[in-house]
């Protein structure tokens, strides 16, 4: 039968790559990237999306290429000032951004809502133009959404830590969570560089890549634990290398399928989903490599004394 046997093979059978030899290079690269990301996080910082920044965003489609001056004039006649008008997607799509009044002012919520209506009225005066989307988020709501988003992130990390701790020894849990935090900083750096807006959907994307990354680490750790029982005297470095090599073709296979699933979304998913999908793609690459180059060396550093008390000293190559 023509589909009986696999036509292609991902990783040659029985690889023996010495990953642990490069552990310091891996850790150092990761540290540099994460520190760079942290610097980027503080300066210039994330581009906050509407959910977390608050404000008004109106997306409109004009008949024919958008003329910004006409749009600004229409807005001005409705007494909307200080609006940012920019192109978006196609030549006939425009994005109008407004800041909400500060929440120290009375009636700021009502005024925010009135501003959206004014923008709508302004667009209605342009022939053939239509509003595609109009969002207005008040200052109090955006603060709350931000807090909830961060809470979800923090609690997920804690739950992952608790679960791995419960299922494995604590060395595994700590190195997994440290790796996840490093992954997280890199994802933030990626967001800063790409100027993707950080909003609730991005929090979901980040949580998904954290979930994926954990999943990947659990598979490698699972094999390490199995091999710890199987090879009672093998030095830990050698044992971790063996475990990574044994699971390598699964690690790469799964990364590939998830990558392939997300790729069309990044390329054709439309404005609202492509940012999400690009972060996913980045996260898949980072999460997969960090399982091998960060989580495993960390486990080696932390577990060398504890996990392998009776082992013979590691042989220097």
């Amino acid at each position: 039968m023509m589909f009986d046997r696999p036509l292609l093979r991902f990783v040659p059978r029985g690889t023996k790559i010495n990953f642990m030899r490069g552990r310091f290079i891996g850790l150092a690269t990761s540290a540099v990237l994460s520190i760079a990301s942290l610097i980027l996080f503080f300066h210039p910082g994330l581009t906050l999306g509407l959910d977390f920044r608050g404000g008004i965003v109106v997306e409109a489609r004009t008949q024919g290429p958008a003329d910004f001056n006409v749009i600004r004039a229409a807005l001005a006649s409705e007494h909307v000032s200080a609006a940012g008008v920019q192109s978006f997607g196609g030549p006939d799509d425009v994005l109008i951004r407004l800041d909400t009044p500060p929440d120290s002012e009375p009636d700021h919520e009502a005024r925010t809502q009135a501003m959206v209506d004014s923008v709508r009225h302004a667009i209605a005066t342009l022939p053939g133009a239509q509003v595609l989307r109009a969002d207005a988020v008040g200052a109090s709501v955006s603060k709350e959404l931000f807090r909830n988003g961060m809470l979800a992130l923090g609690i997920s990390l804690l739950m992952i830590l608790a679960y791995i701790w419960f299922r494995f020894e604590w060395e595994f849990a700590v190195s997994a969570v440290v790796t996840l935090v490093l992954d997280l900083t890199k994802a933030i750096g990626f967001l800063v560089i790409t100027h993707f807006e950080f909003d609730l959907v991005m929090v979901a994307a980040i949580l998904t890549i954290l979930g994926y990354s954990t999943n990947d680490k659990v598979v490698v750790y699972d094999r390490v634990r199995e091999n710890l029982r199987k090879y009672r005297t093998m030095p830990l470095a050698e044992l971790i290398d063996l475990s990574i090599n044994e699971t390598l073709s699964r690690t790469l296979g799964t990364s590939c399928t998830v990558f392939l699933a997300a790729l069309p979304l990044a390329l054709f998913g439309g404005a609202s989903l492509s940012g999400f999908a690009w972060v996913m793609l980045f996260g898949i690459v980072v999460g997969t490599s960090s399982s091998i180059f960060i989580a495993a060396p960390l486990l080696l550093l932390m577990g060398e004394k504890r996990l392998r008390r009776d082992a013979r000293p590691p042989t220097r190559p």
Partner: peptide, 21 residues
């Protein structure tokens, strides 16, 4: 094991998330 961790993360997201999330 691997699905349990993913499940935990997303149940949290469901409990604490809002709207589209």
């Amino acid at each position: 094991d691997s699905n349990a961790t993913a499940l935990l993360a997303h149940v949290m997201l469901f409990v604490f998330g809002t709207g589209p999330v």
